[in-house]
Design a protein around this nucleic acid. Structure first.
Lengths: 324, 324
DNA sequence: TGGAATCACTTAGGCGCTTAAGTTACGTTC
DNA sequence: GAACGTAACTTAAGCGCCTAAGTGATTCCA
């Protein structure tokens, strides 16, 4: 397949089938209101397959004024497996509306004006969280409605609050917080720490110290040692990955879990259940349900209607296991 | 931002700046060979910013005959974190060539002809492995050169072969293989098992039994029990995730690791080092290096030149840890 | 049996952008 | 001062697709 090959156009198919390009378009798109005898239809379709015709999307988009793309705008090239299930359900749901979900890798909202990402001309832009000013400007350039995927749950339902309540019930009074090292997650991290703090305050517990816990084993041990030095016995981690780093640190420090120290994660990461000791964690909304809700909102947004508000998120759920 | 807003076109900018649309195009694209006095240039640029103009990609693509998109065609919506680093490096490298990396989520090569994915009109399609017939047909519809990302290493360098050699050196003679349950990975899985088999044969070891190991803790215990019942003491896992499931199973069966059974993964998954016992694994090529090589090939392919062969992959590396 | 309705198409823009090929107005050159 | 070159633009065609508005044939109904 040389790059030189001229693309097969509707005109080629038309010539091959002995009709006009308009007829090809009508047949290919199953245009309602057009009367096309089955015989002609067959002839066109056969010619199309014979030539390997596929409509050229940019031309189609130009003519129609809108593409069928939904752009998932997310900076980090990796999401927790929880989101993977979510994205999968989302993609399937969107397909039923003739939409196609696409993830732009490695985008940088601070890059210059002539950003190649504009290439996408999406119908709808999806952002995980409320975008900050930089990102708002960037996403605005697409000229498509921006939908924020994550509903923010009311405070008492927040996963981090559940962590605190659970540890408190287990008798821990001195809690600590383990932060994620990736700066791209800083906004999420701060918000979770704040929830932990506020919940501690509401229960009359001391202000929880926070430490960044790197994902390398040695560095994690050091960070955990520092955290324990503050007298902490219950640790709320940013998510399951960080919680596992904490567990590794505790193991290397020969601290008994959960007897001497307890750890709670967030995400219900599949690997977290496989650890020894298995990690207690908080499971967020069911991916399939929230994906369905998002599909509904996206489909509505595409019609130009105002984006409907998200359905209230189901409450987060505690999954108690051996680490607490 | 209502969906009704008419898009700002080059003609609008032209009117605002008192020039023709052609001039706008020349200015915006910095067309060489055009003499445009700085004053006019400023005027056009100012008008463009004032109106919030951004060229409409589909029209541009249509006129130029090519987009700047590189489509990452991969069915599963999740890749190991190793690939995440790879994709990140890849996206950055492509940006320097004015290309944009995009991952189409939830694509299904067996779906009907009118697949919305055609919407992308990529310049180059990237596939992890040699596509099977279904996929070849599907990818061909894009009319773009298909590049296979992964170089197939010569047999003795393959990661699975390293697993076998390592376990054999540690004195294990009865080896087993732990398969991944996801059918979308079946092709990879078979190929790894075959390498394990062949390497065992070349070392005079018995044919290794294979068992699928689910990622849920209970099911994993059962699968590991079955595997051990065959007399196996060394286990090669499809990847680190599966290896961790095996470790969980061994822990629940109270089998001492590495004294009674040893496990080796593949991928150098960051979480695998955090497990207790830490997982021995095989690290694949350095993401940054192989990404750079791929960028080179993609850039070449876009010019229409034949796709250059991949640079030979650096050999996989054993990372010995506590599980063997 | 003639006018209307229907069938089975075709013609001809237009979507927004790029770019080869003009066009006009100045300076130069000899 | 006629011929020429260059600067600074503009005109117009074309990328491939969609679709409103035709256009001949048939068929239908009174």
């Amino acid at each position: 397949m040389s790059g030189r090959a001229r693309r097969v156009t509707a005109a080629d198919v038309a010539r091959e089938a002995g009709v006009s390009a308009a007829t090809v378009s009508y047949v290919v798109n199953d245009k309602p209101g057009q009367t096309i005898p089955p015989e002609t239809r067959e002839r066109v379709l056969a010619a199309a397959t014979r030539l390997g015709y596929a409509p050229y999307a940019p031309a189609r988009t130009l003519a129609l004024g809108a593409s069928n793309l939904v752009l998932f705008a997310h900076r980090a090239p990796i999401v927790p497996p929880t989101y993977a299930r979510y994205l999968e359900a989302l993609a399937d749901g969107l397909h039923e509306h003739g939409l196609d979900l696409v993830w732009q890798l490695g985008y940088d909202p601070t890059a210059g004006a002539r950003h190649p990402a504009a290439e996408l001309a999406p119908a709808v832009v999806l952002h995980l969280t409320e975008p900050d000013p930089d990102e708002t400007a960037y996403l605005g350039r697409f000229g498509a409605p921006v939908i924020v995927a994550l509903a923010s749950a009311p405070l008492p339902d927040r996963p981090s609050a559940l962590q605190v309540h659970h540890l408190a019930e287990r008798g821990h009074r001195a809690l600590g917080y383990a932060s994620h090292p990736d700066p791209r997650l800083a906004a999420f991290d701060r918000s979770r720490y704040q929830t932990v703090s506020e919940t501690c305050a509401s229960l009359g517990l001391p202000v929880p110290p926070a430490h960044t816990v790197p994902l390398s084993r040695d560095a994690a041990r050091q960070a955990v040692e520092d955290l324990l030095a503050t007298g902490v016995t219950g640790i709320c981690a940013y998510n399951d990955e960080i919680a596992l780093a904490v567990l590794a640190g505790l193991s290397d420090l020969a601290v008994a879990v959960p007897a001497q120290a307890a750890v709670v994660g967030i995400d219900d990461h599949p690997l977290a259940a496989l650890y020894t000791p298995a990690l207690t964690t908080i499971s967020l909304d069911d991916p399939a349900t929230s994906a369905a809700d998002l599909v509904r909102r996206i489909a509505a947004a595409r019609t130009g209607a105002p984006v409907p508000p998200p359905a209230p998120a189901p409450p987060a759920r505690l999954i108690p296991r051996a680490s607490t």
